[in-house]
């Protein structure tokens, strides 16, 4: 029995994370969120419920919005992953991050990376969503501070900013 109980060999994976090629050695059971956080030090994606309910671990996998607690790291071998850390460019916030800043879209902040990544997935598919469409797009994200009103306003602000295009100010006074 000892042989069958032994841990299977680690598997080498290579994936592109936020535009950079990254490699790692993982057990097949390693979840993508743990590989991102502990393997690559990208702690933006949070582990909340760990049961694919809360959405605080949302990232993009090959352009699809997914919950990284319900994807194995080995499934992402060869894939492109975008995390919250990859949204901003050249020290400037992404318009969605700008929206959360301007419209007070966070309280404790735990759900925020997932909320922003879900908003990113929404605005990619639908650049001009109604309030109702925004609320439906957040079906897989929970905010235990119940700050939904301002989260919706933040995404509306971001949609407007993105519609106005690159002439709109996207840098912030954060620094």
């Amino acid at each position: 029995m000892a042989d069958t109980m032994a841990a299977p060999a680690k598997v080498a994976i290579t994936l592109t994370v936020n535009g950079e090629q990254r490699t790692g050695q993982v057990e097949p059971r390693t979840l993508l969120v743990h590989f991102l956080r502990e393997g690559l030090g990208l702690t933006g994606a949070h582990v909340g419920c760990d049961t694919s309910q809360c959405g605080s671990c949302v990232v993009e996998l090959n352009g699809a919005s997914v919950k990284s607690c319900t994807v194995l790291a080995v499934q992402a071998d060869g894939a492109e992953v975008l995390t919250i850390e990859g949204l901003g460019r050249d020290g400037a916030y992404h318009p969605i991050q700008e929206g959360f800043w301007e419209k007070h879209g966070l309280q404790c902040g735990y759900c925020t990376p997932g909320m922003i990544m879900s908003a990113y997935g929404l605005l990619k598919r639908n650049p001009d969503p109604s309030e109702d469409e925004i609320r439906h797009a957040l079906d897989g994200n929970l905010c235990r501070c119940t700050g939904y009103q301002n989260i919706v306003r933040s995404i509306q602000y971001a949609a407007q900013l993105m519609k106005d295009g690159p002439t709109a100010p996207v840098a912030t006074s954060a620094d």
């Binding site: 694919s52 959405g55 996998l61 699809a64 997914v66 919950k67 994807v71 879900s118 897989g140």
Partner: peptide, 9 residues
């Protein structure tokens, strides 16, 4: 079915 992320995969 599920939510947007569940429907992705």
């Amino acid at each position: 079915v599920g939510d947007p992320q569940v429907r992705s995969l």
